[in-house]
Simulated scan of single mutants.
Amino acid sequence: MVQIESFAVEAWMDQYETKCEYNIAETCAASISIDELQKLSEDKGREIFQTSTPLTYGSIRGSDALRGNLSRLYSARSAALPAANIITTPGAIQANYLCAYALLGQGDHVICHYPTYQSLYEIPKQLGAEIDLWHAKPENNWIPDIEDLKSLIKPNTKMIIINNPNNPTGATLKKSVLQKIIDVATEHDIIIHCDEVYRPIFHSIGPMDSDFPPSLLSMGYKKAIVTGSMSKAYALAGIRVGWIASRDPELIEKIAEARHYTTISVSQLDEQVAAYALHQNTVHQLLSRNISLAKTNMEVLEKFMIKNEDECEWVKPLAGTTAFVRIHREGKPVDSVDFCAKLLESTGVLFVPGSHSFGKEFKGFVRIGFVCHTEVLKDGLEKVTKFLRKELDDVKLAE
């Protein structure tokens, strides 16, 4: 029997997200409805659902329309990516699972960017792989050191897993860092799996930056795999559509074979919505809405951090929808679980405790999901400020 560790962040969200008044823990850009999606399209008359289509399993590897739109997005600034090199999944969580399930097992060694979403390192571990965590630290702006990566390489290293933009820190591995990772992987013939679910929500770095990070698929390394989804950057978590893409058809075929055991196909209805959202008549407006929301809300969050600089510190995130904030009392980190529990009870505001959900070493850290509706963020953070002023002394300190 596989030994399954508790999926800490998802267990926390499962327990509390329907019981809060201000959900500032969710990591999706504020979700939109079908009606709102249609209003964003330049072609208002185009139907989302083809209601005359029989609801069979559909295209096993993903609809032609959806994979074609994804192919166009990944091909925009690089060599064309064939649609055949993309397969769809029910969300990125299964995309990530399948990359491990198909490619890793007993005797393999995996290096995983850390902190990050727990399943990225926990699933390879469950499958019998040996795991080393490649630690990023706040004193280095949450960017892991390449020399540390080199020191972790072993003869049996099969895969390097990165998360860019990063959850929970919002840090971004820029182009020069990605190239150094590729150089290491090339030397040792290692697969790189990059979870890009928060791409392209870049709110504090722009394409004119000379080190702006492209998708890993745009950097010419054949043994690169990326995963993505409609949930985070595209504000459509409810349709449960994700994908896996690679320029190596052999990797895609291995994953597709494993996928037969877990998926068969993705819901036709979900894929129709995803294809509509990623169509060139809609995708630019959708992303513009979400990036604009992220920029507006980042300004709100920055003001909160300045107002509460005696109790809060951070490395300002560059991208994505999350920030990792350290809460302390006279320099001593609070017990983040006790803080989040008391905050929720007193104010209705939900944060995610870092020491519970991302690693015991992250004492005092909380994850904030700030790309919710702006009024929710403003009102919720006002309540957090009052809590910090009046009730922080009642919160336990980290042991």
Rank of each mutant, 00 (worst) to 15 (best):
F387R: 10
Y114D: 04
L217G: 09
E187M: 11
I48F: 04
K222A: 07
L251N: 04
A79T: 13
S151A: 15
D209Y: 07
R46V: 03
R240Y: 11
Y221S: 01
E21C: 13
I146Q: 09
K383G: 06
S246K: 02
Y22I: 03
L388D: 13
A185F: 02
K254W: 00
N167Q: 08
E313C: 13
P82L: 05
I252N: 05
I146M: 13
R389N: 10
A185Y: 01
S41P: 00
R326N: 13
D148C: 05
D189N: 15
Y117C: 03
I60E: 08
E311P: 02
A224H: 07
R259G: 02
A233G: 08
P54R: 09
G128V: 03
V241K: 10
R389F: 00
F358L: 08
T282S: 10
I264M: 11
M1T: 11
V300M: 08
E17A: 13
R259I: 00
N163V: 01
L120F: 05
L286G: 04
F339D: 12
I252T: 04
N163D: 02
K39C: 06
G206Q: 13
R247H: 14
A275L: 08
E382K: 11
Y101E: 13
F365E: 11
A224M: 12
A129R: 03
R247F: 07
G364Q: 09
M13P: 00
F387P: 05
A319H: 11
D145F: 01
L152C: 03
F387H: 09
C312W: 08
Y22S: 06
P207T: 13
H113I: 00
S288G: 09
I131C: 01
L286T: 05
V273L: 07
A171T: 11
V352E: 09
A79F: 10
A84R: 11
T186G: 12
A11H: 06
H113E: 01
A294R: 09
G68A: 06
K44V: 00
D64S: 09
D211G: 08
M219W: 10
V184L: 12
A11T: 12
I48Y: 04
L103G: 03
G331H: 03
N156K: 15
A25Q: 01
T56G: 11
D270E: 08
V315C: 15
G206C: 06
F365L: 11
S346Q: 15
L269K: 07
A102T: 03
I146F: 10
H113S: 05
E130Y: 04
N140T: 15
W12K: 06
K342C: 07
R367V: 15
E382F: 02
L103V: 03
K180I: 02
G238E: 12
L392G: 06
G331I: 01
I34V: 08
A323I: 02
C112V: 15
L287R: 11
I153P: 04
A11R: 09
T172S: 14
N163Y: 07
P138Y: 05
Y121N: 02
A256I: 03
G206S: 14
E299C: 00
K386M: 12
